[in-house]
Design a protein around this nucleic acid. Structure first.
Length: 422
RNA sequence: GCGGUUAUGGUGAAGUGGUUAACACACCGGAUUGUGGUUCCGGCAUGCGUGGGUUCGAUCCCCACUAACCGCCCCA
């Protein structure tokens, strides 16, 4: 009986896993440079955490969560995003009490959302994210953005666009919301059904609508930027000034609204090249207030999350390959039954000496063993047959030029090692 | 949740209502009694997503289901 992989999931097969390893390695290296430390939280949490943290009205909570009850009748959810868990852990372990503030954290791992799969969107996907908790300094906003861009640039991406906005403080949002409703309400009948629903629920989202994008009221809609309080505006100016100083270019987009309720002040997205409909590689922003919402002390926070899957797509579009073909240091070819008995021990010696070595397990003919060695890009092939056994010497062929020498069994590891460094 | 397209070997794919389901790549073997990337020769789907139906007969026609891909919504 053959059982298929669940919808919206995929396997990373051995030919692709080196690429993932390279990406993860790069993420860790960049975080290390920026002095962010890794945090690992569970893949599932109490459902309440996401309802409160992400927001009850969001699509994520309303229709995309993988909920289940365990045998103890607890309501649990496979995490749809990383920030809520990180904040939960921050509060639970009272990390805010440590002398080392702000708390700068990163994570890499799978997230789960029940959605229709398409290009750049799967039900299990992988995020690399960063959270800086405990500082409301605008330089952290800029730092987090710089970290994301540095990561992409290290991987070779060229076509990146940073889009920036500010959602201001709660006061700003309330005033803007009121203005939006007043602006759209008289003519809301001319808008799509979704927008009609959005009017009361979250009028900010109307600005994001693709169907009604060309409606005349869109262009004249009140911009959040005009409603920023003095302090919120000053904060945003600070962030922009720091990005300018860093030489980071950005595009301001007053309609940039993020999908999670917890955002305020700075929000941003990084877009890349994409062959599909989705070009957002990363999204993030500031979320002052989330920590206290989740039971901790009043604490500022800022972070982003990016999708490894979408990064892979962008790398593909830009025709960037992160890893070359793997090669074997040597391949042991056995000829005849006597040799086969001896080969495993020799192989083991080579491996213990730190050489990447392998042999045939498919009862292949000599020719096929060489073909296999070639396929694996083996640098040397060690041939063991009756003659070699008789003299306790192996024939060692250098695949690059076809030259061959005889080397005694005992000197084999050292011989190959020395030749490899030539 | 909605819409479109597709479903043939390990892979890419052609194909027809009727005896043996092209071709290419990959793989294996032989030409080369113990040596790679070229060449030549040979082998490799009792089977055409699953379940029904139409028919003397279906991989090909019809229906349902499932899945994948793409798009909408939304998002990373």
């Amino acid at each position: 009986m053959f059982i298929q992989i669940p919808r919206g999931t995929y396997d990373v097969l051995p030919d692709q896993s080196p690429v993932w390893q390279k990406i993860e390695e790069t993420a860790r290296a960049v975080c290390d440079l920026f002095n962010y430390k890794e945090i690992r939280t569970p893949l599932f949490e109490s459902t309440d955490l996401f309802q409160r943290g992400v927001g009850d009205t969001t699509d994520i909570v309303q229709k995309e969560m993988y909920n289940f009850k365990d045998r103890g009748d607890r309501n649990l959810t496979l995490r749809p995003e990383g920030t809520a868990s990180v904040v939960r852990s921050f509060v639970e372990h009272k990390l805010y009490g440590l002398p080392d503030q702000p708390t700068k954290l990163y994570y890499i791992g799978p997230m789960f959302r029940y959605e229709r799969p398409q290009s750049g969107r799967t039900r299990q996907f992988t995020q690399f994210g960063v959270e800086a908790l405990g500082s409301a300094d605008p330089s952290i906003d800029a730092e987090v953005i710089a970290l994301a861009l540095t990561f992409y640039q290290r991987l070779g991406l060229k076509h990146l666009k940073l889009v920036l906005n500010s959602l201001g403080d709660p006061e700003t949002r309330a005033a803007h919301r009121k203005a939006l409703i007043a602006h759209f309400k008289p003519s809301i009948g001319e808008f799509c059904e979704d927008c009609q629903r959005r009017l009361e629920k979250n009028p900010l989202r109307i600005l994001d609508c693709k169907k009604d994008h060309d409606h005349p009221l869109m262009a004249t809609a009140p911009s959040i930027i005009d409603y920023l309080t003095d302090s919120a505006a000053a904060y945003f100016e600070n962030v922009k000034a720091m990005l300018d100083e860093m030489g980071i270019t950005y595009e301001l987009d007053p309609t940039l609204v993020r999908g999670l309720d917890y955002y305020n002040h700075t929000t941003f997205e990084i877009m890349g090249s994409s062959k599909g409909a989705i070009s957002t590689l990363a999204g993030g922003g500031r979320y002052n207030g989330l920590v206290s919402e989740l039971g901790g002390p009043e604490t500022a926070g800022v972070g982003f999350a990016l999708s490894i899957e979408r990064l892979l797509l962008a790398l593909d579009v830009e025709d960037i390959s992160l890893v070359g073909p793997a090669s074997l240091d040597c391949y042991l070819a056995a000829i005849g039954g006597h040799a086969e008995a001896k080969v495993p021990a020799l192989l083991n010696e080579l491996r213990k000496a730190g050489l990447r070595a392998d042999k045939d397990y498919m009862d292949r003919k000599v020719k096929a063993q060489f073909r296999q060695a070639d396929r694996e890009h083996a640098k040397f092939v060690v041939v063991i047959g009756d003659d070699e056994l008789a003299h306790q010497e192996a024939s060692v062929k250098k695949m690059a030029d076809g030259s061959q020498e005889t080397v005694s069994f005992s000197k084999l590891p050292d011989y190959i090692k020395s030749k490899l460094t030539d």
